[in-house]
């Protein structure tokens, strides 16, 4: 039996009123959609399940819950325990453009009650979505207002919950989802320790581990003496990589899901940088001082450390037979991007 390091299934609910943008964000983050293509998506009927494998034994069971009133009613009544029990994370999406914010809050409150009843230890991530529709200078204030109102209706979750302003049109979506994934990964610390050692050995300024399909950051190590002023660089790079993957797919005709580069390198006056495949599910981004010998030894050492990282990666081992969901890497019907 694979009892020692069996993958951890984590149930994640994605909820919010119909049209809030739940399926859109799922398509962009997990199914290689370009932001402008989400218009093709229809309203979600009932619940769409997807199972996504991540580095570090994580198996995400994502429940995209269609937000039309009839469905929500059903979740709260007949399917109450089925939907709300053993939830690790609830992602609740608020549409910033919504004209009935008070009705949204009421709907939210009903869901919170059900969650508190069935999964009191769950964590809530609230996404205030479609922020691109608000002028940049008004965003912070608007977010703060909404956060206050939502918190007041969050019962026992108010203390631990997190809020993010998001839009499928920029990196803010990656920022939020990176935090969600990081919260869920069971052995993030082990991975981090190994990365730290690697960073020492190759004298890296920064190492960032990215999941390959989603380009979401798993974890990072920073060793640089000077503080990098770009605090949003991790989600920026996620967004850069995702966009680039789509561009390559379009140009080469390879489907976006497999238009992966083996390596990208940049040598500039002040730094050297490369991204290379580390394990089956991850890419490693490396920033080092600008010297050819450091570059060469770094590449070599990473090559050598691949095996030990592979042991942390679920996909490289056989899937446990019991209880695993059929087609575990499928992302449901969104796959046909």
């Amino acid at each position: 039996m694979n009892a020692v390091k069996r993958q951890k299934n984590r149930k994640v609910l994605l909820m919010g009123k119909s049209g809030a943008g739940k399926s859109s964000m799922r398509a962009v983050v997990f199914s290689n959609y370009v932001a402008k293509d989400v218009r093709r998506l229809g309203a979600t009927i009932d619940v769409e399940h997807s199972n996504i494998k991540f580095m570090g034994n994580l198996m995400l069971n994502l429940w995209d819950c269609g937000g039309q009133d009839g469905f929500v009613e059903n979740y709260l009544t007949h399917q109450r325990t089925h939907v709300f029990s053993s939830v690790a994370v609830l992602i609740f999406v608020f549409d910033i453009e919504s004209r009935e914010f008070m009705a949204d809050i009421q709907n939210y409150y009903n869901i919170i009650q059900a969650l508190e009843e069935c999964s009191p230890t769950a964590k809530i991530f609230c996404l205030i979505h479609k922020m691109d529709l608000v002028q940049a200078r008004l965003r912070i204030q608007l977010l703060d207002e909404r956060v206050e109102l939502i918190k007041a209706q969050s019962r026992g979750f108010a203390e631990t919950m997190e809020f993010y302003a998001t839009s499928i049109w920029d990196q803010s979506l990656y920022k939020a989802w990176t935090q969600i994934i990081y919260y869920l990964i069971p052995n993030a610390h082990t991975i981090e320790e190994m990365l730290k050692q690697l960073a020492e050995v190759i004298d890296a300024r920064e190492l960032i581990l990215y999941e390959r399909t989603t380009c979401l950051m798993v974890t990072k190590v920073t060793r640089s003496e000077k503080e990098n002023p770009y605090h949003d660089r991790f989600e920026r790079i996620s967004s850069i990589l995702k966009t680039h993957k789509q561009s390559m797919a379009k140009h080469t005709g390879i489907p976006a899901g497999s238009a992966n580069f083996a390596e990208l390198q940049i040598k500039a006056a002040g730094f050297m940088f490369f991204i290379t495949r580390l394990t089956e599910n991850t890419n490693l981004a490396v920033c080092i001082p600008p010297a050819e010998h450091i570059f060469n030894t770094a590449r070599l050492n990473i090559e050598l450390s691949k095996a030990s990282f592979a042991s942390l990666d679920v996909a490289s081992r056989k899937r446990p037979v019991e209880g695993s969901v059929a087609g575990s890497s499928s992302t449901g019907d969104l796959d046909r991007a």
Binding site: E206, I240, H244, M248, K250, I266, A269, F271, C287
Partner: peptide
């Protein structure tokens, strides 16, 4: 048309990463 597009997208990648790691604004 695709050739110009892919080069131009490539420049974006390079410029964006260079901005993050290579420059003091």
């Amino acid at each position: 048309i695709g050739s110009y597009e892919i080069c131009s997208d490539y420049i974006d990648v390079i410029i964006d990463i260079t901005e993050i790691y290579g420059k003091i604004p």
